[in-house]
Amino acid sequence: MRIGELADRTDTPRRMLRYYEEQGLIVADRTPNGYRAYDESNVDRVLQIRGLLDAGLPTRLIKQILPCLDKPRVIHFPDATPEMLATLEDERNRMTERIRCLTRNRDAMDEYLGAVREKLATGSTAGG
Rank of each mutant, 00 (worst) to 15 (best):
G123V: 08
L57E: 02
T87P: 03
G56L: 03
V43K: 00
A28P: 02
E40G: 08
R2M: 10
T87E: 15
D90A: 13
L52T: 06
L113D: 10
D110I: 04
N42W: 06
T59V: 07
M1S: 01
P67L: 00
D79L: 05
A28H: 04
K119P: 06
D39M: 05
R106E: 05
A28F: 08
T125C: 02
C101T: 15
G114D: 09
L66T: 02
A37N: 14
Y35T: 10
Y112S: 11
L25V: 06
K119T: 11
E5C: 00
G123L: 13
N42P: 04
A7P: 00
I75C: 11
R104Y: 14
D70H: 12
R73E: 06
A86H: 08
V43P: 01
R50T: 06
R36D: 08
L88A: 08
P82N: 01
T87A: 13
G114C: 07
G34R: 15
M16D: 09
P58D: 02
T59Y: 02
D11S: 07
A7E: 00
Q48T: 15
T122L: 09
E111K: 12
T87K: 11
L113Y: 09
A108G: 11
E97T: 15
L66V: 03
E21H: 03
K119L: 15
P72Q: 05
N42A: 14
C68Q: 03
A115K: 12
T81M: 02
L120P: 06
P32M: 01
D70A: 15
L88R: 04
E91K: 13
E91V: 01
G24E: 06
G128T: 12
T103A: 12
P67V: 00
D8M: 06
N42I: 09
A126S: 12
L61Y: 03
L69T: 00
T12K: 06
D8E: 12
G34T: 10
N33M: 04
R18T: 09
N42C: 12
